[in-house]
Design a protein around this nucleic acid. Structure first.
Lengths: 206, 206
DNA sequence: TTATGTGAAAGTGTTCACAGCC
DNA sequence: GGCTGTGAACACTTTCACATAA
């Protein structure tokens, strides 16, 4: 049970499994079951077993899963056995908060480049990062080979900055601008817009 | 075609329709079609028509939809014909960035309360907000009747703060802590964890 | 006995395609 | 002619339930 195309919706759950497992490891658990993992995440045991079965047989009947082993397998599947470099594009309030966030490193990521087009911000230091001029962005991204960008620029320029990032070799964009980005096939975009989530919730409130 | 239970996945798309329509209005468009709206969002025309049909017949055959009218209908459906008050819990880097974000107001929300337990932050002003002591949180939330909270506290305390919020009458939580929150039935939680999205994307990169 | 991995069944969601109306 | 609203067809996802193995 290995080389089918695994549904994207399954891939989307794997990082959550990984997160729960890492928490279990921290708590000293050595073994777990689909039932226990599911209860922690609000997901059915059957779904967890089915999801994992796309990639191999990681459990032992009667026993469950080794926490450590399953973490390693998930990290391999998600290509997290390396540290991924990120470019931060736009260093406003949100970009600055992301630049200071300590939670990236032990989950597989680090910001290595930061850009802004505001002369007041260029040269500014945030931790070990120095904000660089957006004008040099394509060159610097190509030089460093960074493949993932976090986009925290105003919506009004998000699409044109995106085009520029794609042209420079970026292959995945985490978009914080409240707008749908158009990209060529093969480029991955995920959008985070908290207000869409708030508006989703208000449907259920009165 | 009105009073079925509308699938949650449909509700989740409505805010995106609203966002695209508001952009169209800004551009001066008075009329649109399911095709045009879909192209802007990367969604099929059939799906948009089907989604809207859960709530009524908003279009005219041969003509399409009035942008202004459809905006009004969606705002009514999502209960956005009022301004929703928000409580911000945790005023670290991310919480501060949210407090300063200008994009809430014209999409139906405003932050009216902010809390932290760090004495250095209590009393601090951010725009018109004053950071209050977490100890007074339940009382203040009850007084003001705020129903929605944005949770930007460390993962280690997120669950206990959540319990406290629910006890105080909060009915919806936008959770920024990288952890699965457990809440009683009827309480709505949406989680925003950028690293889950990054880890989802790396599956497709090499 | 316990808990996995998995076909089959059930349940959801999306797209098709066209009657009906502007 | 153009575009909506919608049953029917299709596709996808989840759950069930059990043979199998530790």
């Amino acid at each position: 049970m290995a080389e089918q195309v695994v549904p994207d919706i399954v891939i989307g759950r794997l990082p959550r499994y990984l997160q729960a497992l890492e928490r279990m490891r921290l708590e000293g658990l050595q073994t777990t079951s689909s039932l226990e993992l599911g209860q922690r995440l609000g997901i059915s045991a059957a779904q967890i077993r089915k999801d994992l079965s796309h990639f191999g047989e990681f459990g032992k009947q009667g026993t469950g899963y080794s926490v450590e082993f399953l973490i390693e397998q998930l990290r391999a599947i998600l290509h997290l056995n390396r540290l991924w470099d990120l470019a931060l594009v736009g260093v406003g309030d949100l970009g600055s908060a992301l630049a200071r966030y300590q939670g990236f490193t032990n989950r597989g990521f680090r910001i290595v480049l930061a850009f802004d087009n505001d002369p007041k911000k260029i040269g500014k230091r945030i931790g070990s990062l120095v904000v660089e001029d957006s004008a040099t962005m394509p060159e610097r991204i190509r030089q460093t080979g960074v493949k993932i960008a976090m986009l925290t620029v105003p919506a009004s320029v998000a699409q044109q900055v995106t085009d520029c990032l794609v042209e420079a070799g970026i292959r995945a964009i985490l978009n914080y601008a409240p707008i749908h980005l158009v990209v060529p096939p093969g480029i991955i975009v995920e959008t985070i817009d908290p207000i869409l989530k708030l508006q989703h919730m208000t449907y259920y409130l009165d």
